[in-house]
Design a protein around this nucleic acid. Structure first.
Lengths: 185, 185
DNA sequence: GCTTGCATGTAAGCGGTTACATGATTTT
DNA sequence: AAAATCATGTAACCGCTTACATGCAAGC
């Protein structure tokens, strides 16, 4: 379980409210870890109770007040301990692969549109990642020298880009295979 | 939720017991969908109750009896319906990426050994996949002509291979980045 | 004698998803 | 007038993980 740790990292990068965290989990952090706001609020409350994070009530004009969370010393210690702990390499969970193997017992051609939908989605994500990379790291408005945090964010983003490119190439392969199986057999 | 569907696919490919299914989920199917035997037994019971699958008691000598499950007509219908339903492209959940971003607030160099461990694991998996590909699809003992089911299994396996190769290349990138950050800063 | 493999389960707990709820302000 | 944004929550459910449990046979 690493939602707590993902939140700690995100709060270290930038303190913020539960709502703001939820938005980040739809963007940068969410590229490799997802969470809904309900989850985030519950975990924030527990982390606050455990003294991992501090809260500060921030009044705002023309907007509801918000609670700004920031990482406390015990939270940093928890994160550091976790960073030094080995974790198991992820096992993939790929629903589409189940579908593809299932297509052998149905009409393979029926999957073509589904695969094309996934191509579109991954292609959109790739474009989004590349735009973010240009904006923050490689474009003309990016900082000339990056600090350690930025370098690490960049290498994670490169991982996302590589993943999407690999997936798109594989989906091409899948489509070609489905087309080969479709008409003649 | 697709465990039921993964089980249906696996039982269509080859009927078998809960125990056998659990072993397959450690191998072929498990490359892209994991499940423990406890989960599998529970779901099998429910699927049997719903009439999706049939059971046959198989006595064995020198071994405990087993229940061999096979897909019934309603199960095929359920699978077919699912195959025609669109699914959302997976969102990745990559704990290591959280750790890498977290390393900005700790000692980046401490992550190097962890990344090397992951390299080893992914390298092993890749070797395993490639051996399976040679055995079943490209080697001298593989069938000359593949049927649709085998073609689809092969394209899924190619996806696993591409994933591991991409991951290994990315982990090299991560290591290089950590080494760059480590000594001087 | 110990471990591994075959075979099937129960029980507890928890993380995560989905649905529901509220309320003000800004934009369309 | 309606929809979207900001902001925080409660409640129910369910899938999944972990731990515990049993029992026999074969191999080291």
């Amino acid at each position: 379980m690493a939602l707590e740790h993902a939140i700690l990292v995100s709060l270290l990068e930038q303190p913020g409210s539960g709502y703001e965290l939820a938005r980040r989990f739809d963007r940068s952090i969410g590229y490799f870890w997802t969470a809904t706001h309900q989850q985030i609020y519950r975990v924030l409350k527990r982390m606050e109770g455990d003294g991992w994070i501090d809260v500060r009530e921030v009044p705002q004009q023309a907007r509801p007040d918000k609670k700004e969370y920031s990482v406390a010393a015990p939270g940093r210690a928890v994160l550091s301990a976790w960073l030094h702990e080995p974790i198991e390499p992820e096992s993939v969970r790929h629903e589409l692969a189940v579908k593809i193997r299932g297509a052998a017992f149905d009409d393979p051609a029926a999957l073509i549109r589904e695969v094309e939908r996934h191509q579109q989605a991954h292609s959109d994500r790739l474009a989004h990642y590349l735009a973010g990379e240009r904006r923050d790291f490689t474009g003309p408005e990016a900082p000339a020298a990056l600090d350690a945090g930025q370098e690490l964010q960049h290498v994670v983003l490169r991982g996302g880009i590589a993943y999407e490119q690999m997936t798109l190439a594989w989906l091409d392969d899948v489509l070609a295979t489905l087309h080969r199986l479709g008409p003649e057999r």
